[in-house]
Design a protein around this nucleic acid. Structure first.
Lengths: 132, 132
DNA sequence: CCTTGCACTGGAGTGCGCTCCAGGCGGCAT
DNA sequence: ATGCCGCCTGGAGCGCACTCCAGTGCAAGG
């Protein structure tokens, strides 16, 4: 089975070497196996777990909750229902996050339009300064 | 013209009192006017600026960039083009942010579906354990 | 008069998630 | 033999954005 050097994992996952070590230290990755010289050799499985971690992190899941999820995975098959619950809950949060982002974005876009209107006004009625 | 006490502004904007003071300290708000006792009295304009700040912060603009925007606003009308540029640039980032969020979300949803499939499999073929 | 509440100040502290560092090791290309 | 590269460790440090604190002040209500 294929293994990956730290450098390759950095390449594949986009996490920095320090971040990978950090994740192992805090138990977000379980202990990574080592070669004779004590260097890490990541398995396919480690890398795919990191892919999941990437999804969760980038959607704003705090590390503490990812640890909880990692724990469930380690506890085995009987936690699958709970994992689904956790992920669905998070999925809802992501949905809410996107909705909020869209709403705030529209506020920004209104401001852009407002400024554009000011400029247009200025072109049409030169010399008539407006406030704000 | 209406003024707002700190408590009212907390209520209206959702920023904490400490955050409001912090924003004033770093210059994201210009100096807020005071009553005889030295207490802050926010104007309508302050509150509406805070509304903009809320949009920018919640869409992930760092404080340093909001300071830059605040500076442009203070410099007057001739910076409107630049303000538009800044906001449009940010708008694009928000768009990218949402796209990324959607993509990562779909990764999570695939995982949820995978787990659900595992459960369904387990119901259909009891006694046949699967891995991962 | 006294408590309660809201607000004030400057400065220190917090939490998160990394990120950097010094000092060292093993292997390989020149 | 000598670099140099990639990696190792434990621990310290960092950047961001707040958040909290001690000590004080005014003002209105019981």
């Amino acid at each position: 089975m294929a293994v990956y050097t730290p450098g390759q994992v950095v390449e594949e996952t986009g996490f920095s070497l320090d971040t990978l070590r950090y994740y192992e230290r805090i138990g977000l990755l379980e202990p990574i196996s080592r070669n004779a010289a004590g260097q890490r050799r990541f398995t396919e499985e480690d890398v795919s777990w990191l892919g999941m971690v990437r999804c969760l992190r980038d959607t704003g899941m705090p590390i503490a909750e990812m640890l909880r999820f990692a724990q469930l995975v380690r506890e085995g098959e009987h936690t699958i229902e709970e994992r689904i619950k956790l992920l669905e809950e998070h999925d809802r949060k992501v949905e809410a996050q996107i909705a909020d982002l869209r709403q705030k974005q529209s506020g920004i876009q209104r401001k852009i339009q407002y400024y554009k209107d000011v400029l247009a006004m200025r072109d049409m009625l030169p010399g008539c300064e407006q406030a704000s």
